[in-house]
Design a protein around this nucleic acid. Structure first.
Length: 491
RNA sequence: GGUCUCGUGGCCGAGCGGUUAGGCAGAGGUCUGCAAAACCUUGUACAGCGGUUCGAAUCCGCUCGAGACCUCCA
């Protein structure tokens, strides 16, 4: 594909042609989860979005280093009482666990859920707790440059000072003066020179469990710092793409820019990409709002608002059917539609494998492929690409129904194309794979059953033929009579 | 209050100045012993009111409604 890839850059608020700093190599950093409870549907969105990006960039011939952190140091939670408490530490106390035990538990389930969604694991999945030394180093650099100050064992970023030399707010489109007048007063911030200053290092209160020694105090790093530190460490002082959820744009990513710029004197990220939120009843799905459905609940159908379980691939397909910068609204109806649509797409891929070629094609293959790649190259427009794939489904079914024909060359090309698009780029996979050891046995048995039923049909013994079909249906096998004999598939 | 986004047919969701998006659901038909699948045909849209234009879902203004960020969040 020699069409350029365009991606929407939050910095410029428009689509830009993507050109890596080093041709053929792409550095990609995506903000990972804070592992203090189960992953929910909302989490699926960014990681599927950036998995698509990763897969597509790779398909386009790039070598991609994909870094996605695990936040295991915990973010400060602003309690009503004003006592900031570390989320992970809090959870640990509630569950009587070591903080690292909490982290391990939820990191495991997160990774398992991501595997289920067929999300390729990143090249590096660094943990904040493993980079305390690097974070301390970066704080020192920022202090040296004069953009931070220490007070009572804590270190804060001096936003006002920084804003004199650079623009704090360039990513989220705000200026400091407005921010100043509109920042809410929060408790426990008396130490800071200004309310919008943010912590680089925070002294731990006596009861705070997660703590590390530093020259300033026994404490822990500020929450924005880990991403600056780890992206720099693994991708360099400048790299190509930084991604994450829209809700992280401010303040998290704004702070990251400030930290990188303050410590290194230059901006790190060339393209900022942000995915939109998943909504439920029109409202953002978030842990803090308590309206979330965990991925495990979705896969098992155990949440009360779910009418049925939805498989990981249904979820993946559902998310890919919306553009990543639009909100996508959850509903049972929408997910059921995705499930059926996905089944139709996947069975067309199966049909493709059985198609017979003819002398010449009455169908046109090239245009379909171009349209799909064009869509993906236009800021990852997966819904458009999928729409074109469905046009292809119609084509494939017409060939099967012998209303259209396809040449051997075209058929080969079409097969490869669908394989690439569906499996490699969109990252969908077949879900009904039974244990392979069973498959041959089952296939043999089914062949026998089908042939016995065929005998019954030939003898016009409909009662027997229908009984076989009905009983098979009861155990989850669908029999379909076609012109070329009966076919079967698992439900 | 400030900044910003969005309102598309029964549902989800593209399009963003002139052309059928697509999926699911619905209706009719072909095929079939019946069923399923597949195929064909098909209806229902662009929140409202003004304006710009030969032409607007698409641009501008206003009204109404919804949401996001400004505090942890994917």
């Amino acid at each position: 594909m020699n069409k350029p890839l365009y991606i929407y850059n939050t910095l410029s608020r428009k689509k830009e042609e993507f050109k890596p700093l080093v041709e053929g190599h792409v550095g990609l950093y995506v903000c990972g989860p804070t592992v203090y409870s189960n992953s929910h549907l909302g989490h699926a969105r960014p990681y599927i979005t950036f998995d698509l990006l990763y897969r597509y960039l790779t398909f386009l011939g790039n070598k991609v280093r994909y870094v996605r952190n695990i936040t295991d140091v915990g973010h400060l939670e602003d309690e009503v009482e004003g006592v900031g408490e570390d989320r992970i530490a809090k959870k640990a106390r509630l569950e009587q666990l070591e903080p690292m035990e909490v982290v391990q538990k939820y990191m495991n389930t997160f990774q398992h859920n991501m595997d289920q969604l067929n999300i390729i694991r990143p090249s590096i999945e660094p943990r904040a707790s493993g980079h305390i030394i690097e974070q301390i180093q970066m704080i020192e650099e920022i202090l040296e440059q004069g953009y931070a100050y220490e007070i009572n064992g804590s270190v804060y970023f001096d936003v006002e000072k920084y804003n004199k030399d650079y623009h704090y707010g360039k990513l989220s489109g705000r200026n400091l003066e407005d921010t100043l007048t509109n920042t809410r007063k929060l408790d426990g911030q008396d130490e800071k020179k200004n309310p919008f200053d943010f912590a680089l290092w925070k002294k731990a209160s006596p009861e705070h469990i997660m703590r590390w020694p530093s020259k300033w105090s026994d404490g822990f790093p500020g929450w924005h710092l880990e991403c600056s530190t780890m992206s720099t460490k693994y991708l360099g002082e400048q790299f190509d793409i930084h991604g994450g959820g829209m809700d992280l744009t401010f303040p998290h990513h704004e702070c990251e820019i400030a930290q990188n710029t303050a410590s290194k004197g230059k901006e790190a990220v060339k393209y900022w990409m942000h995915n939109n939120m998943i909504t439920i009843n029109g409202q953002k799905m978030a842990r803090s709002l308590g309206n979330f459905i965990t991925l495990d609940e979705l896969f098992s159908g155990t949440h009360e608002i779910l009418e049925q379980p939805y498989s990981p691939m249904t979820i993946r397909f559902f998310i890919l059917q919306a553009h990543y910068r639009s909100t996508v609204n959850f509903s049972n109806e929408a997910l059921q539609a995705s499930q059926k649509g996905l089944e139709r797409l996947m069975s067309a891929v199966d049909v493709l494998g059985e198609l017979k070629s003819s002398e010449a094609s009455t169908v046109e293959i090239k245009g379909l492929q171009e349209k799909c790649f064009e869509a993906l190259s236009d800021d990852l427009n997966s819904p458009i690409a999928i729409a074109h794939l469905f046009d292809g489904v119609k084509m494939i079914n017409s060939i099967k129904a012998e209303k259209e024909t396809i040449s051997a060359d075209d058929l080969q090309e079409l097969k490869e194309f669908y394989h690439t698009m569906v499996f490699d780029i969109l990252g969908l996979k077949k879900e009904d794979e039974t244990a392979s050891a069973d498959n041959e046995t089952v296939a043999g048995l089914m062949q026998l059953v089908i042939s016995l039923r065929q005998n019954a049909k030939t003898a016009k013994d409909w009662a027997t033929a229908d009984k076989i079909r009905d009983k098979l249906k009861e155990i989850g096998i669908i029999v379909k009579d076609t012109k070329d004999g009966a076919e079967w598939e698992k439900e």
